[in-house]
Nucleic acid binder design. Structure first.
Lengths: 227, 227
DNA sequence: GTACTTTTTTAGACTAGCCTAAATATTTTT
DNA sequence: AAAAATATTTAGGCTAGTCTAAAAAAGTAC
């Protein structure tokens, strides 16, 4: 049980989180150096540097040229950050009345505050929520994630009725776009047609007016089949 | 109005805040290099380094060997940090039910979160409090500080009745000590005797049992004369 | 399987923020 | 006002995290 209180810098935390979310996104294999340098808008050389450091700390499994994945220790760190991020998002929305496209940047800062006690009390204060405002599950204090059956709409590629459960992409631009087209968590999306050429989705939201989703939208919203 | 969004690093913010609070403590003249290196438990050479950087950014007035004071720009930054710190302390105490000696370390982290919108909403959420749990005034969004007439008990050096309005020293150790001797904001302190040799204060708290304050306690509690 | 392209790593350099050791100012003592 | 003590600054070095340029590995094409 030594090294339990190893210091992880803010930058290291951000790398761990990035590795986690990139590997969740395309759950195939490890995350590549280039994926990370794209994500951070920095140079591949900088990423390599950091990967060495994280490997030294046993937070990732790293072999030259082979990409990277989190160790169980790294995964714990990642999940804790995700838990903090999502709890703070709930706080910002429900208590401070921010809108869902405004909270991400602030939560990115708050997620690095170090205090287990704080996060436990915040959780209680918010009523131990299970999902954040974007529909993402909030890991519990043991790192257990309430898995959801939702998948990106594009993966179903079938007509039918779906319920919007969350989003994959959290940028302000994307969330504002969804707000603009009048889409929010819980809405019912009826897919009436999928164009085979450009993958445009013809849909009805809550049985109202007909709309079209680009494949970009379809691949970034998480839906469940409506029973 | 250029340079309004100049970047100030976390470390720089901490120096600004330290310069502010040290210059408030003994309002005589500027703050010396050694005072700062004591405060941060680092070396005087490191302080000199940083003072040069802060002077370059016009946050302090600095002349070699002459000590340092905040410019009006630096003062604005300092007061904003203080405002954030104290609002977060109120949040931690009133909403998350922390005890008053537990909140400081967490607030030290939270005070660096960058978002004017956040702090404005937090203020509103907390009911626009004027004082923090330690009795310190919370600056308003224009940097106006609700000044208080309280001074450290030791500065009165006279028998009489006082009201505890706040503390100068915010360390966990000190606050726990106060809790232990049963002292909290609002208590009435009757100074019955001040020993001229060792400056020990013989006092009664809320007309109960007789106690003794060391000069260390007397110099770190803020009191008002009771009318 | 040799040549071309892309990805990744290495080597060397830069900044912020810290350090130690030595030099220089300032203050205090006498 | 000279000597001693203290405070402060300079010079040079270290680490984390970034960069550029060049080298090496992996992947793709013919």
């Amino acid at each position: 049980m030594l090294f339990l209180y190893m210091q992880i810098s803010l930058t290291e935390e951000n790398y761990i989180k990035a590795i986690y979310s990139l590997s969740v996104k395309d759950s195939s294999e490890g995350v590549s150096t280039n994926e990370l340098s794209n994500y951070f808008n920095n140079k591949a050389a900088s990423v390599t540097d950091m990967l060495k450091r994280l490997a030294d700390k046993k937070l990732i499994n790293y072999q030259k040229y082979k990409g990277v994945e989190l160790t169980s220790k790294g995964l714990k760190v990642a999940i804790k950050i995700v838990r903090k991020h999502r709890l703070w998002e709930v706080f910002l929305l429900e208590k401070l009345n921010f809108k869902w496209d405004e909270v991400h940047d602030i939560a990115e800062q708050l997620e690095h505050i170090q205090s287990d006690e704080l996060i436990q009390r915040l959780d209680k204060f918010l009523g131990e929520p299970k999902f954040d405002p974007h529909g993402d599950p909030i890991p519990d204090s043991n790192g257990q994630i309430n898995s959801i059956k939702a998948k990106p709409l594009i993966q179903f590629s079938k007509k039918g009725n779906y319920i919007l459960m969350g989003v994959c992409e959290h940028s302000k631009e994307f969330l504002q776009h969804l707000t603009q087209i009048g889409l929010k968590i819980g809405d019912i999306i009826k897919v009436e047609e999928i164009n085979s050429f450009d993958h445009l989705y013809k849909v009805k939201i809550n049985s109202k007016q007909t709309q079209f989703f680009s494949s970009k939208v379809a691949s970034n919203i998480l839906v469940e089949v409506k029973k």
